[in-house]
Design a protein around this nucleic acid. Structure first.
Lengths: 111, 111
DNA sequence: ATCATATGTAATAATTTTATTACAGGTAAA
DNA sequence: TTTACCTGTAATAAAATTATTACATATGAT
């Protein structure tokens, strides 16, 4: 279960959820795990684009993946959702605001 | 009190919260209302930039503003926070996923 | 062999978001 | 009338995100 422990972490999770495709991915995976091509067909988007969105969700551990070899022998990458839950309200934001980090993407990459 | 009634609305609120400055604005305003210049000084950002962020928060009604004439006679624009609360989890996202809208910014502007 | 399906990613383009600069206006006090 | 506040915004620049295109590899079935 994901758990928000800092302002920085809250921000990252919010960013990960702030996209219609990524919300749809979460919705779909909340019912059952899917492999990449299957998910791409279901959402009606290209695999490269799906990869991009899956990466962002994986970075904050909303989803995770496992490679499996299907009965027919093909490699399949399955994505599944990690359950998550937090109360979005001003109290949470206030409480975590002291641990908010203001850095550009480039600065973050240097860490 | 803000209340999330559609996937589209959820997405907009998440987008509004997905920025460190805007989270700080929410944190500061959760304690007391502030006027624009005061808030800009407190956050250490320029007024034009602050306006941009306040606009995004105002669009989803997380904050609202009132113009007042101070005792000294100067116009002051006060911003205050609207209380908000919702459970972020996959159930909510699944429930609202049917009302998610996929439109570019340009397409939205044409509506 | 060719087709259909799966994986993965690099390079580029398009769009959106964020930030800055440079202005405009006003009131009040020194 | 100069200084110190306040409001507001247009134009531009910079950075980040999102989307597309074009590849490469592999397996199994026809």
């Amino acid at each position: 279960m994901i758990h928000i422990n800092s302002g920085d972490n809250l921000l990252k999770v919010l960013e990960a959820c702030s996209n219609p495709h990524r919300l749809m991915i979460i919705a779909v995976l909340s019912k059952e795990r899917k492999y990449v091509s299957q998910l791409a067909r279901e959402l009606g988007i290209s695999r490269p684009l799906l990869y991009l969105h899956l990466q962002k969700l994986e970075e904050v551990e909303i989803v995770s993946s496992t490679m499996e070899i299907s009965e027919s022998g093909k490699a399949m990458k399955y994505y599944s959702l990690h359950s998550f839950q937090f109360e979005m309200n001003e109290q949470l934001i206030y409480k975590l605001s002291s641990t908010l980090i203001f850095k550009s993407k480039k600065e973050k990459e240097r860490d």
